[in-house]
Design a protein around this nucleic acid. Structure first.
Lengths: 142, 142
DNA sequence: TTAATAGAGGACAAATTTGTCCTTTATTAT
DNA sequence: ATAATAAAGGACAAATTTGTCCTCTATTAA
């Protein structure tokens, strides 16, 4: 498992919210959790923190819900770093405090280009692209 | 964090044990945990499971300890899969049960080559190589 | 202005990971 | 044989992650 459960839910939920935002603007937590197959209350917490970090938006009251205005400028990396931090890309694979270019752990140099690729992959496709592909039926969220 | 704490300790401990095995054969858990800077009792548990899985060997009693006979045929992937399983390389990045080549999640295809690279990296250098480099002072384990 | 709606937030609970401590078992040397 | 040594193993504890439930607050529509 490469991302935390929270992060997995966060990504799937964000893509779904982005998709729904194109049409009738807002989507409730019930619809979200059902669509992505995640525990409702837990997902609510996660979306709550995404809103606090300005990744998603929300509105209370009737006809309220979650929405996303600019799916073109939101990237996977934003969601990943908001929920899991950047440890996946930078923290030492073997858990050494002092690991660095000058004082590397045994796998440091060999793994660096690989995690850089992952970082690039997470950074170069906006959520709107995922939505487009999802609508074409190329992908699943559950 | 890409590997579990247990796996980090397992790798560092195994490399250290492999290094010591070249000289005076066996090394006690105290020396291991001190050398790699890990909690002693917890590390003991971890080495215990590595022994059970035939990755390391051990001997009880005076002049006993942990050792490794064939560092040439032990690879990082053996330690990683023994402690963390193979989820890092195969389980869906977004946590979808049904994710597969034919029913992929939005990131499936793009991440696959990257995790394959990681798998290759973990598979192509025996622990003995790490020991050699470590003895040259190229690396650190703490 | 009131009732219904829906997210925000706090308290709590289960599960997993990480870690400690103490006893048992096997081995070695005296 | 016996004492010392060191891993094996079980029970327990702390910390973190994952998850639930209930109340509060804001908003909308009648």
């Amino acid at each position: 498992m490469i991302l935390s459960k929270s992060c997995e839910y966060a990504i799937r939920a964000s893509v779904f919210v982005a998709m729904k935002s194109k049409e009738h603007n807002r989507v409730g937590i019930g619809e979200v959790s059902e669509a992505i197959g995640s525990p409702r209350a837990f997902t609510a917490k996660i979306l709550q923190t995404l809103v606090r970090k300005n990744i998603l938006s929300s509105a209370k009251g009737p006809s309220g819900g979650f929405y996303l205005e600019n799916a073109d400028s939101l990237y996977l990396i934003d969601i990943v770093s908001a929920t899991d931090g950047n440890g996946l890309f930078v923290s030492c694979v073997l858990g050494l405090r002092a690991c660095s270019e000058t004082q590397p752990c045994p796998v440091h140099a060999r793994v660096k280009p690989i995690r850089d690729q992952l970082l690039t992959e997470f950074s170069n496709k906006p959520i709107s692209d995922f939505v487009a592909d999802l609508e074409k039926g190329k992908y699943h969220l559950k």
